[in-house]
């Protein structure tokens, strides 16, 4: 009964799927599309582990319905790397030890990816505020902040190289 056809762009690919209207986006991604990058931490929109990008905005996929993404452009951590090369935020988290257990990492990466487009040259305080919707139980955040700072520099260098 309450099923709907949903069309969206998911990590650059056009997809069309039959979705139960009550299905949350995070379950749709993980169970129907086998994209297990977006994690389920709290399911109450607190921890940010499920963060994805919808039409250029960071959204917690545990508090969004898959049917609401009809016509949208959705990006998950699986869509960050391009042509086999890690995205600058991924490289920076790897180099700066921005993770320990890795559970929060997909959400941290997706939020950092969007945050650095909103604010390409942030201060440390702005980084902490910009990532305040993402919790990490391991790192103490220090290396996550360093990773975002390093990613900002990488992205700026890329920008000036192509300009």
């Amino acid at each position: 009964m309450a099923k709907q056809i949903v069309k969206m762009t998911l990590n650059g690919q056009q997809i069309e799927q039959l979705v139960d209207s009550r299905t949350l986006l995070v379950h749709f991604l993980r169970e129907q599309m086998s994209l297990t990058g977006a994690h389920i931490g709290c399911e109450t929109s607190h921890c940010g582990a499920c963060t994805v990008d919808i039409d250029g905005e960071s959204v917690k996929a545990c508090t969004h319905l898959a049917v609401q993404c009809d016509g949208s452009d959705v990006k998950t951590v699986e869509g960050l790397a391009e042509a086999g090369a890690l995205h600058a935020v991924q490289e920076a988290f790897y180099e700066e030890h921005g993770l320990q257990c890795g559970f929060c990492t997909p959400g941290m990466l997706m939020r950092s990816y969007r945050f650095l487009q909103e604010n390409p040259n942030p201060t440390e305080d702005e980084i902490r505020l910009g990532l305040s919707g993402n919790l990490c139980r391991c790192t103490g955040y220090q290396n996550i902040v360093k990773a975002v700072q390093s990613a900002a520099i990488k992205l700026q260098q890329k920008e000036s190289a192509t300009a």
Partner: peptide, 9 residues
């Protein structure tokens, strides 16, 4: 109010 992601929605 809330956090950056929640404030988008």
């Amino acid at each position: 109010i809330a956090d950056p992601q929640v404030r988008n929605r």
